Simulated assay, not measured.
Amino acid sequence: MKARTIASSRYSPREVLPVVANPVLVFVVILFLYIISSIKILKEYERGVIFRLGRVRERAKGPGIALVFRPLDQMVRVSLRQEAMEVPPQDIITRDNVTLKVNAVITLRVIDPTKAVIEVANYIYQTSQFSQTTLRSVLGEVDLDELLAHRDRLNQRIQTIIDGHTAPFGVKVVSVEVKQVDLPETMLRAMAKQAEAERERRSKIIHAEGEYNAAQKLVDAAALLATQPMALQLRYLQTLTEIGVEKNTTIVFPLPLELMNLLNKSLSTQSATETKTNP
């Protein structure tokens, strides 16, 4: 009985009631909790677009601390970092009637958070749709060879067109890269045959040029040897030296050209006399 009396006296209503019934203290506690919940922290790459009573504030908040007093205010977070968006494969018919599947990668970033929130419902989806239509229209105006050889120029053209569409809602297209071009199997075989024929043509041209250069050098060498008869004799001796090093059984009899010329002259004289004696 004595312990119960001490416990009941410790939590007496007379002591607790003034603390609970103090409205000023309750209001201060509620106000403090409301202010704490209204503090929002925005990171360095984030901006907050605040709507007050349905109207947007003139300037986006951030980075740092932003006060959002609900339910009067609402805040939409927007990231300013670059985002990579992949364009799904598109069926494209080039100007020379070749069917392709082409996909691309687009890098974009938000430069005006307020316009990106107000002007469109979803700026990423909007940019994706513009990218798909632009990719089909631009690549459908070029030949297959131009698509494969001048991809950088086509990327720049696609970027300019898409950037013109996204600029009104505060999105900047940083780069566009055609990622992959899928060719039909028949076109791959035809291109392989074309490349093989081109390499064969080049090899024949190079071989013909080599033969021509070799013949030209032989003509030049013959003309040079004709001016110096002793050079031919030296060439004979050099050939004999090269053959002797190999230690084979080949026997070489050098025949002077003067002897050949003498034989030719004698044969021509003999044929001329026979023609005169036997008309």
Results as ranks from 00 to 15, higher is better:
Glu185Trp: 00
Ser203Trp: 12
Ile6Val: 12
Gln238Ser: 12
Val174Glu: 14
Ile111Gln: 15
Leu218Phe: 05
Met260Glu: 15
Val56Phe: 08
Pro63Glu: 05
Val142Trp: 01
Gln270His: 05
Gln126Ile: 01
Lys2Arg: 13
Val87Trp: 03
Tyr11Thr: 09
Ala116Thr: 00
Tyr236Asp: 09
Ala226Glu: 15
Phe51Thr: 02
Ala149His: 06
Gly164Thr: 00
Ala214His: 11
Ala104Glu: 09
Val173Lys: 01
Leu183Cys: 07
Ile124Gln: 12
Pro279Ala: 04
Lys40Met: 06
Leu33Lys: 09
Leu139Glu: 00
Glu200Gly: 05
Leu154Asp: 04
Glu258Ile: 01
Leu234Thr: 05
Asp91Arg: 15
Ala195Ser: 12
Arg14Asn: 07
Phe51Pro: 07
Glu146Leu: 11
Arg235Met: 14
Glu246Trp: 07
Val110Cys: 08
Asn22Ala: 08
Arg52His: 06
Met85Leu: 15
Lys247Phe: 05
Lys40Arg: 10
Thr250Cys: 11
Pro113Met: 09
Gly54Cys: 07
Arg57Ser: 07
Gly140Thr: 00
Asp182Phe: 10
Val68Asn: 11
Glu141Ser: 13
Ala192Lys: 15
Gly54Gln: 09
Ser12Asn: 15
Pro71Thr: 06
Leu25His: 05
Arg77Pro: 09
Asn155Thr: 00
Leu147Lys: 07
Met75Ser: 06
Ser268Pro: 01
Arg189Trp: 01
Asn97Met: 11
Ile92Ala: 07
Val219Asn: 07
Thr249Tyr: 11
Leu144Tyr: 06
Asp91Ala: 13
Val78His: 14
Ala149Lys: 08
Thr239Ala: 14
Thr269Asp: 12
Leu188Gly: 02
Ser266Met: 11
Arg235Asp: 04
Ser79Glu: 12
Pro71Phe: 06
Val28Thr: 12
Gly140Leu: 02
Leu237Pro: 01
Asp91Pro: 02
His207Pro: 00
Thr250Lys: 15
Tyr45Gln: 12
Val171Thr: 04
Ile251Gln: 08
